[in-house]
Simulated scan of single mutants.
Amino acid sequence: MTFAHDTDVALRTAAALVNTARTAHGDTLTTTDGLRDFYTQWGWTGRVTGDAHELDQVRELRPRLRAAWAATSDEGLATLVNTLLREGRALPQVVTHDDYGWHIHATPSDAPLAQRMQVEAAMALVDVVRVGERSRLRVCAADDCDNVLVDLSRNRSRRYCEDGCGNRLAAAAYRSRRDG
């Protein structure tokens, strides 16, 4: 594994958040119930108000995080990360809770959810920059999909997102060979 467990989780969570804006079914983060489901699914802790303003703030964060996957250089990614950290008022602290062991939180648990999401993603992206692994931030290789993914495979071979694009394309190729 290239990254610490908390970095791995934060990167996958950031990708999942970005991908809520672009799915085959449209935007999947349109209601406060959907935000609460996302919060629970990805194991967030701390304050959540569950109101429309919080939903709007989280939705507005998605294109800013997507920019990490569009960065064409380490310098560009570092500039984005520094902006996210500065604007998120990051103040790293070493903490332990649940089953994570010692790890870093850079915002208080009562900070707004969107701010915590922003800083959590930025802290994970710090590790991406530090170890020179920007190439692990990818866009799905399916022609009809622009979801983002984090390739955490040992051999850097992951090409498709979590929405089943790899299986869909493999099935289409099989049908084409069989019928061809």
Rank of each mutant, 00 (worst) to 15 (best):
G26W: 09
G26Q: 11
G26I: 14
G26Y: 08
D27Y: 01
D27E: 06
D27K: 02
D27A: 04
T28Y: 00
T28C: 03
L29F: 10
T30W: 00
T30Q: 05
T30M: 02
T31H: 03
T32Y: 09
D33L: 12
D33Q: 14
D33V: 06
G34N: 04
G34A: 14
L35T: 00
L35V: 01
R36Y: 09
R36N: 08
D37R: 13
F38W: 08
F38I: 00
Y39K: 01
T40C: 06
W42H: 15
W42P: 06
G43K: 02
G43V: 00
G43S: 07
G43I: 00
W44Q: 13
W44P: 04
T45Q: 12
G46C: 08
G46K: 08
R47A: 15
R47C: 11
R47S: 15
V48G: 13
V48M: 15
V48Q: 15
V48F: 13
T49K: 11
T49G: 12
D51K: 03
D51S: 08
D51N: 13
D51V: 12
A52S: 09
A52H: 13
H53G: 11
L55K: 12
D56Y: 09
D56L: 13
D56E: 14
D56C: 11
Q57H: 10
Q57A: 15
Q57C: 13
R59H: 01
R59G: 03
R59A: 05
L61T: 14
L61W: 08
R62M: 10
P63K: 11
P63W: 14
R64Q: 15
L65P: 08
A67C: 06
A67Y: 07
W69I: 10
W69E: 08
W69S: 08
W69F: 15
A70P: 04
A70H: 15
A70L: 15
A71Q: 05
A71I: 02
A71H: 06
T72Q: 14
S73P: 03
S73G: 05
S73M: 02
D74E: 15
E75R: 12
E75M: 07
E75K: 08
E75D: 14
G76D: 06
L77A: 03
L77D: 02
A78V: 00
A78E: 08
T79M: 10
T79W: 04
L80R: 12
V81D: 11
V81Q: 11
V81Y: 10
N82G: 13
T83W: 09
T83V: 14
L84N: 08
L84V: 07
L84I: 07
L85G: 05
R86W: 06
R86G: 04
R86T: 02
E87A: 02
E87I: 03
G88D: 09
G88H: 10
G88M: 07
G88E: 07
G88K: 10
R89A: 07
A90W: 03
A90I: 03
L91I: 02
L91T: 09
L91W: 01
P92Q: 06
Q93K: 09
V94W: 06
V94K: 06
V95W: 10
T96N: 14
T96D: 14
H97K: 02
H97C: 01
D98R: 14
D99L: 12
D99S: 14
D99M: 08
Y100A: 06
Y100S: 06
Y100I: 01
G101C: 04
W102D: 01
W102V: 00
W102C: 00
H103P: 13
H103A: 09
H103C: 11
I104E: 07
I104Y: 03
H105T: 02
H105Q: 03
